[in-house]
Every structure is written in structure tokens, then in C-alpha cells.
């Protein structure tokens, strides 16, 4: 079956439990597992969540809408810097910072989307890299706003709802991040199943055909870029809030490229694919880099080659087809 079977069947016919509810249950379970597996390293998990948001954001434009980009971290980073500056200026309420980061992301997404989606194919890809490099260069130059190569530090957010302070163990940060991720994920589930989401998938399949049914392709893609910007912006905000620092790495080309790798690893064009890809990649990286600090990049490379060879559509479609085969084998035996 398709890679959308898990949660995104667009024509609900026999759905008993809403997909949103299932998603919340699955993600709470994953979050609990994370807490049990990495009790002393919640900072790793919160970082994982902010990157997962970047990958989800990338999925909206690349996986769902077919826009090739290698500059997505620009949106993530700009929001992180915006939140960092706001916090240093005295606005320390985490929810307010999150909203500000989402707004910065939306603006950045709309602006870069308006430019990038005008083009197609390789020119589009090159332009996305150019936007990313431009932002990275600015981040380096405008050291008054970004701290340059030293980065922005000393960001100390206030209490969540005025009650829960961010503690050194990262518990508040973890719960806060999980909650934000779940809310974003559920909203996105809804958006990708909306008429607008369906149209974006159609545009990805064949943009001329989409225009021939009367769709205004360009404004829709820019809008999707705006939505994607909000999600990347929230990811960047979480990174700034949880780590207290924003460095040049948050706008780097490597971050954009890594996000794309995670997306392809999990399965582009599916929110679950994006989530699974970012979890598997980062957990693998976490363990392997600790076990072998010198050759871990080689192993990550080997993992990617294996996935591209044996599961070119990503891990999620592979998992679904495997479970499907096992299930039908069991049925035929019974």
C-alpha cells in the first residue's frame, strides 16, 4: 500500500478513532520511551525535537509540494536568532517567544518561498542554497544581532505559564518541547489532509495539470512555504529556548542538508516519515558518535547508502510494506 496508509487517508470512510487522537497516543508513547531510554540526556531529546520540527517543515515544501530546497535552515536559524534577541531584550515568556519565533519563521518562509517557488528544478535548488548562504553570511557579519562566530548566549527564558522553570536536568524543556511537537504535528495532520494540502500534493505530481484544473500554483506554494516557515520557526525557537545559545550552525548549509537526509531516510511526503527519519538519524548519530568518535560519520554514510539501496522511498514505506506482508502471511496461514 501507499505511504499514507498510517495516518493520512484523505477520504475517511471507516475511521473509528480520529487520526489526530491516534497521533497523540503514539507520540506520547514515543516521548515516554525517550524519557525512559535517555533519563540523563534529556537535552539530547529536546535538540532532537527541534530538529524534527525542521524536518517536518521541510517535508511540507519538499515531500508534499515538490519544492527542492537545501536552504531550509535559514528559516530555522533566523527564528532562533529572533527569539534569542527578544529574550535578551527582556521578553522571557516562553510561549511569547514561541509565537515570536513562529512569526519570524512565517515571514522568512513567505519571503524565501516567494523567491524560490518562482523557479523549478536545478535553478530552484541553487537558489535555495543561495538564500541559505546569504542568511549564513549575514549571520556571521551582523555580529551585533547574532554574536557572529561566538554566537548568541545567555538566553534564559522565564517560567512556562509563570510556574514551571527551565531546570538544569531539562525536564521542563523536554515536556514543553514534546507538548509543542504534538500540537504542531496534529495541526499539520489536519493541514496536509485539507483541500489545500491535497492540492499541494497534486502540484507536486504535475503542476501543469494542476493549473489545468484551475489552480493558482504559485500563491499556493508560497502559502505552503509560509506554513512551513511557521513550523521551522517553532523548531528554531525551541532550540534557542532550550539550549540558551544560538550559533552559526543553526543557519548552516550542513543543517539544511542533514534535514533533507533525515527526510529521505524516513520517507518524504509523509509526516510520520519525517518524524521517524529524524528520530532514527539522530539516535543513530548519538550512539555511534559516542561509540566511535573518529569514524561515526562513515557509519552514518553507510546507513544512508543501505537505506537508499534497500528502501529508496524511506524507512516508513518499508516498515508499512513489511507489516503488510507479515499480516497477509499470517492471514493466509489461518
Amino acid at each position: 500500500m501507499t505511504d499514507r496508509t498510517l495516518a493520512e487517508d484523505a477520504i475517511p470512510a471507516r475511521i473509528a478513532i480520529p487520526v489526530e487522537l491516534r497521533a497523540v497516543a503514539i507520540m506520547l508513547t514515543l516521548a515516554a520511551f525517550g524519557y525512559v531510554l535517555f533519563p540523563d540526556d534529556l537535552a539530547f531529546l529536546t535538540r532532537l525535537i527541534s530538529i524534527a520540527l525542521l524536518v517536518l517543515s521541510l517535508d511540507l515544501v519538499t515531500g508534499y509540494s515538490g519544492v527542492a530546497t537545501l536552504g531550509h535552515s535559514a528559516i530555522f536559524g533566523v527564528s532562533a536568532y529572533a527569539v534569542g534577541n527578544l529574550c535578551l531584550a527582556g521578553q522571557s515568556d516562553p510561549l511569547l517567544l514561541l509565537v515570536a519565533g513562529a512569526l519570524a519563521g512565517a515571514l522568512m518562509g513567505l519571503a524565501s518561498g516567494a523567491l524560490i517557488t518562482r523557479f523549478k528544478g536545478l535553478p530552484q535548488l541553487v537558489l535555495s542554497i543561495a538564500v541559505g548562504q546569504l542568511v549564513a553570511a549575514l549571520a556571521n557579519k551582523l555580529s551585533g544581532l547574532t554574536g557572529g562566530s561566538d554566537g548568541l548566549s545567555g538566553i534564559s527564558p522565564g517560567r512556562v505559564f509563570g510556574i514551571y522553570a527551565f531546570d538544569i536536568y531539562g525536564r521542563t524543556g523536554y515536556v514543553f518541547s514534546v507538548a509543542v511537537l504534538i500540537v504542531v504535528f496534529v495541526v499539520l495532520l489536519r493541514i496536509v489532509r485539507s483541500p489545500f494540502g491535497l492540492l499541494c500534493r497534486a502540484i507536486k505530481d504535475d503542476s501543469l495539470r494542476a493549473r489545468m484544473i484551475g489552480a493558482r500554483v504559485y500563491p499556493r506554494l508560497v502559502l505552503m512555504y509560509g506554513v512551513s516557515g511557521v513550523v521551522a520557526g517553532i523548531g528554531g525557537s525551541l532550540a534557542a529556548i532550550n539550549t540558551g545559545v544560538v550559533g552559526l550552525d543553526s543557519v548552516s548549509f550542513e543543517r539544511s542538508a542533514e534535514a533533507l537526509v533525515m527526510l529521505v531516510l524516513g520517507g518524504a511526503g509523509s509526516l510520520w516519515g519525517a518524524l521517524i527519519g529524524s528520530i532514527v538519524f539522530q539516535v543513530f548519530e548519538h550512539y555511534v558518535s559516542a561509540a566511535n568518535p573518529f569514524h561515526w560519520m562513515t557509519m552514518v554514510g553507510a546507513l544512508l547508502i543501505a537505506v537508499v539501496l534497500f528502501a529508496p522511498k524511506g524507512l516508513l514505506p518499508l516498515a508499512i510494506s513489511l507489516t503488510g506482508r507479515v499480516a497477509s502471511a499470517l492471514r493466509s496461514r489461518a
Partner: peptide, 20 residues
């Protein structure tokens, strides 16, 4: 369904479940 919704002007809707 996409063509039907396009004809009815629904494909701008980001947060609707019109398809059902």
C-alpha cells in the same frame, strides 16, 4: 474530488476537512 473542490473554490482552505 480535488477538481470538484477547486471548482467550488475550496482549495484555498488550509484547515478544512471539506474532502469528507
Amino acid at each position: 474530488a480535488l477538481a470538484v473542490m477547486q471548482k467550488k473554490g475550496l482549495t484555498k482552505r488550509v484547515f478544512s476537512s471539506a474532502i469528507g
